[in-house]
Design a protein around this nucleic acid. Structure first.
Lengths: 123, 123
DNA sequence: ATGTTGCATCAACAAACGTCAATACAAGCC
DNA sequence: GGCTTGTATTGACGTTTGTTGATGCAACAT
């Protein structure tokens, strides 16, 4: 249940150039676009925020579904897209399924967007 | 020519909660989703990267159009979406139109995505 | 004025997306 | 076994998105 999922913003992605470092090549652009596309929906953003901001780190689907004015399959679908984007993962425990955020993905995305300091601080 | 454009990731957005700070409300989620949606296309990512990574800060459309295997109207359309998302702006100078990145937008987006340090470093 | 070049807008279409009702699957309970 | 509850998948639908050729507009050249 925790298979598939992009490795777009892979473990060693931090080493790579950011958006403003050098022009993106076609392949990397496509990979990154998938992740940003996953974030490009208000429902998914709220789901991800709900999960990422949770103290324990995990949120039960049974808690997310009623939080939206949407059908259960629709929420399930959005969760699937977030998972395929490599932003979250899940596990079934008994009857319920719990989702958690993969924080590394968010951090790497943030690093990718961060504009390199225009002066000094180059370390 | 430099009117319209979201102020989603507004000047004072850095003060606000990030994605993992607290669950997003519906309105803010919708605003942010528009920006991420703009980033959710490989062509637009490459255009933005091309612009943001440019030394002088500006890129002429006449230079971007031939860099893609797409028609001129398509490139123009993508540039429009990036502008409406508040990520870039442009100005006409004579016959040519120049685009530049609005770096604050990227930085604020990055800040929004950055997971709060899990321990210490709270300053 | 007329033509030329660079860019934006329009109209149209196929593909992708968000949504739902219906259905299937998984796990616990009787 | 069957029933009930929680979640995922399927199939269908209207809407949005990416793309293009045709057209319009702005600025320069002659």
């Amino acid at each position: 249940m925790s298979k598939q999922g992009l490795e777009v913003v892979g473990q060693d992605a931090t080493c790579c150039q950011g958006l403003a470092g050098a022009p993106l090549d076609e392949e990397r652009a496509s990979e990154l676009a998938k992740v940003f596309k996953a974030l490009g929906d208000p429902v998914r953003l709220r789901l991800l925020s709900m999960i990422a901001s949770r103290e324990g780190g995990e949120v039960c689907v049974c808690e997310m579904t009623p939080a939206f004015d949407l059908s259960q399959p629709t929420v399930s679908h959005h969760l699937k897209l977030l998972r395929q984007a490599g932003l979250i993962d899940c596990e079934r425990r008994g009857t319920w399924v719990y989702y958690w955020a993969l924080p590394g993905a968010l951090d790497r995305l943030a690093a990718f967007l961060t504009t390199p300091q225009t002066a000094g601080v180059t370390a």
